[in-house]
Amino acid sequence: MARVISTSLLLLFLLPGLALAGGIEVREFDGPVMERRYAELTATLRCPKCQNQAIDDSDSPIAGDMRDRVYALLKDGRSDKEILDFMVDRFGDYVLYNPRLEGRTFLLWGLPAALAVLGLVLVGLLVRSRRNASAQALSTEERKRLDALINRERTE
């Protein structure tokens, strides 16, 4: 009995390893530069079938096909831009995790900057108006009222 249990436990520990071994793709790279480019490209290309996963992180068949193409195009000596264009031509801007700066994406890139500037301007305006207010001397009426308040507090 104990033997059965220990064997099944051993199998349980080995199973994840087997699953991993099945999922690994072996690729031969022409040097570390190509390997790094492959890693970068597959990390910034988004799997079109998945909700939010890069193709290097997805088991979806289409993600596997896209990795194969990235590899083949790199082997073919294409530039990163050519490879991204190749994917966008087929799957649309959706596959880019880094949207390009162009007419249609101007709002996307510009809005955060515009909001930050707007916030700074607002803060600046508020600070300035406060500073002006405190710099102003109190009128005699205000001074009287202030004295009255202080005196009252002192008597209490």
Binding site: K49, I62, D65
Partner: peptide, 12 residues
């Protein structure tokens, strides 16, 4: 091999 499918942007 799904080559035409790939060029069509088919993902399912």
């Amino acid at each position: 091999d799904g080559d035409l499918g790939f060029d069509l942007g088919v993902y399912g």
